[in-house]
Amino acid sequence: MRIGELSRRTGISVPTIKYYVREGLLPAGQLTSPNQASYDESHEARIRLIRALLEVGGLSVAAIREVMTAIDDRERPVHKVLGAAADRLVPRYDQDPGAGVIEARQVVAELVGRRGWRAEAGGGPAGEALAVALAALDEVGHGTFAELLDTYAEAAEEVARADLGYVTRGGVAREELVEAAVVGTVLGDAVFAALRRMAHVDASGRAFGEGV
């Protein structure tokens, strides 16, 4: 297909498609003449993934380029590809850590070891985000919340297994796996947060004997 048809099928303007190509997010089309290129369904699928990363995941162009590099590296295991995308969805904390965060990192490292999780040292970006949250809890007088970590971890493991089962059903392509992981993580977080709030209401009503 020509770039105009690709634009119509994806709803993305021709200048934006050309921008994606220039930035290394989208492979260039196959040249059919000095001024014409042909595109196919793989370009359409890649644009859908780019939009998911941009609009749902909130990733920067530079971060998306890293994810695309991981996808296109056929020697990289799917686990590493999904990890590259997932790590970019976690907030980054570049400021100098306080003593509370440094102590919380040890708590996180112990959790990772205790659960036997296959994670990089400290749990990676997600582990750092957890350490920052734990430090904040401690700062406002709720440091004992860390006692609930294993309970939360058990629930997270079950949800993670369900998530992975969803995104890997049917032997989909690498791009589709990453798209499903990104959309599922971002929107799945919203779904899980809503369910947690509903469960809180139910638990409170049962504990204190009150109706809705």
Rank of each mutant, 00 (worst) to 15 (best):
E128I: 01
R65A: 01
L89E: 05
A119V: 05
R76C: 14
L137V: 09
G123R: 03
T10L: 08
E120Y: 00
L26E: 05
V90T: 08
R22H: 09
L25M: 03
E66G: 15
A109H: 12
A160E: 02
R9I: 12
I64H: 07
R76N: 15
E176R: 01
V132C: 02
L187A: 13
M1P: 02
V140W: 12
D72S: 02
L59Q: 08
E120C: 06
H43V: 02
L82P: 10
A63R: 13
E120A: 13
R46E: 03
E44K: 05
S38I: 03
H43N: 01
E179M: 12
A153Q: 04
G4P: 06
E44F: 07
A129N: 10
K18A: 03
A45W: 00
P125I: 02
A153V: 00
A133G: 03
E175R: 10
L59H: 09
G58E: 04
D202G: 01
A86M: 13
R169H: 11
H79S: 15
A160K: 05
K80A: 15
R114G: 10
V112L: 07
L6P: 04
R92D: 12
V212K: 13
A193S: 15
A129R: 02
D94Y: 12
G58V: 06
Y39G: 06
L59C: 14
A156R: 00
G116P: 11
Y152G: 08
R169C: 00
A181C: 10
A109D: 15
S33F: 02
I47T: 04
R114C: 08
T168D: 06
D189Y: 13
Q30S: 08
I3V: 09
T151H: 12
E55I: 10
A155D: 07
T144A: 10
R206W: 08
A52D: 14
Y20G: 02
R174H: 03
T69N: 15
G170Y: 07
R196Y: 14
M198H: 15
L54Y: 09
P125Y: 01
T144I: 01
Y20M: 08
R105Y: 00
L130H: 06
V90S: 07
R196C: 12
S38W: 09
R197M: 04
D202E: 15
L49T: 07
G127H: 02
A129P: 05
L59S: 09
G209H: 14
V14M: 10
G83P: 05
T151Y: 09
D87I: 09
V172P: 13
A109R: 15
A86Y: 08
I12C: 06
S60Q: 14
G205E: 13
P97E: 08
E139S: 14
G116L: 06
V90Y: 01
A28C: 05
A136H: 12
G24R: 01
D138W: 11
L177V: 10
A99G: 06
R51I: 06
R115W: 03
D163F: 09
P15R: 03
G29D: 04
D96K: 06
L187N: 07
A129H: 05
V78T: 15
T144V: 11
S60H: 15
L26V: 02
R65Q: 11
G211R: 04
I64Y: 09
L130G: 03
D40I: 02
T10K: 05
V101G: 03
